[in-house]
Design a protein around this nucleic acid. Structure first.
Lengths: 218, 218
DNA sequence: ACCTGAACACCGTTCAAGT
DNA sequence: ACCTGAACACCGTTCAAGT
């Protein structure tokens, strides 16, 4: 629903797209510290237009992140019918890792903005939903330990993204290796080696990331 | 050696300490975005003094990080004589995780500044050295798979720090859980499940983090 | 040598004027 | 409604004057 809040005027919609593309390119090349002026210049619009389309620079970043999360969710739905559930799960993670390595600072933004943004919240919930299904299938097949939840996996994945960020360009193998270690961590285990506590839930995340914006509860 | 470059004048040394303490407190409370003016105020010095003691705000942050890394290294040396090598390794990691949860944005800084700073480079190398010893002992005892290196472990750990950052205050259990998953990833495995490639080395890191400052190679 | 705070530079954000 | 760029605010950094 946050996607179709208002049918923008033609030029506005066009500028929005131009800005998203220009910003994605600029961020991919130079990281998040590129100035708004530079982005506006690349998009061929006035500097003020940036803030007319996005309340803040962080919202612009968030919009790009939401795009990527939607892509990941779509990819997840694709592999959902894969005959090999274990392979499907890690193919999704590998695919996400690849797209985060192409860019610089992609999920980096997620760390800060995360659930403070309503759109990211929604996209995140969707992604967790797909991950949950993939994980459940892998667990049913006995390929993954059954005491982990989708958020456990997502957190580990996020860890890999962050830890290997600087290596993206230099050594893609290092990231792949870290992903293999995640896979190793998720192998089925005996009852004596079960994890403490319970898997984190979306409610835990809600608690950790206080809701900042959003126009009340209607 | 970078520690004892010049015996500062008494008041300068005192101000340096005041600034480090004030900054550590401020960052712990409000994150890295606290202004230099605020830090100077807390330390009771002029704003210009900050830049006289530290060439840049990032250097100030780096100095604090170096302090923490030294603490971690010291802790690692303590547990080096622990009769249980496996326990010693994870006690160190748990201890490091605890200190990163106390602060906010501690190893967060490491991600950006990382090896661009000469002092951090040195502290990092030391820490890796101790980790390497602890890991080697655990591997010799057969408690940890032998196809991982100290940097594999450190990267996984860094991932846990990043991924659980927001949860620090809310739910310390979640971080502990992630650390247990790291432990699971490091369990010995059959020859069919070995990792691809080779463990990352310090040379890999040097390549990933271009050397920015430092007065030539003397 | 070091300290200080006013001045500078830079960049995100706002807004009056224009279409 | 939306676009624009000049003006504003904020914050890291510099520097002339003081000790």
């Amino acid at each position: 629903m946050p996607e179709t809040s208002k049918p923008l005027r033609a030029d506005a919609e066009r500028n929005r797209r131009l800005l998203l593309d220009a910003a994605a390119d600029a961020f991919a090349e130079h990281g998040l510290e590129v100035g708004v002026a530079e982005i506006a210049r690349r998009a061929g619009v006035g500097q003020g237009t940036v803030f007319r389309r996005f309340p803040t620079k962080e919202h612009l970043i968030a919009a790009i992140v939401v795009d990527r999360m939607h892509q990941a969710t779509a990819r997840g739905r694709e592999v959902l019918t894969d005959p090999d559930p274990d392979g499907a799960l890690f193919e999704l993670l590998a695919s996400m890792l690849g797209s985060q390595q192409a860019d610089r600072s992609l999920f980096e933004a997620v760390a800060d903005t995360f659930l403070s943004n309503e759109d990211i919240r929604a996209a995140h919930t969707e992604l967790v939903g797909v991950l949950d299904q993939l994980l459940g299938r892998a667990q049913d097949a006995g390929a993954v330990r059954d005491d982990v939840g989708a958020l456990d996996v997502l957190m580990m994945f996020k860890g890999v993204c962050e830890a290997t960020r600087a290596f993206s360009s230099v050594d893609a193998d290092i990231a792949a290796r870290q992903l293999e270690l995640v896979r190793a961590a998720l192998r089925p285990v005996g009852t004596s080696e079960r994890l403490s506590g319970r898997p984190p839930t979306l409610a835990d995340m809600e608690r950790a990331f206080p809701r900042a914006e959003g126009k009340a509860s209607a």
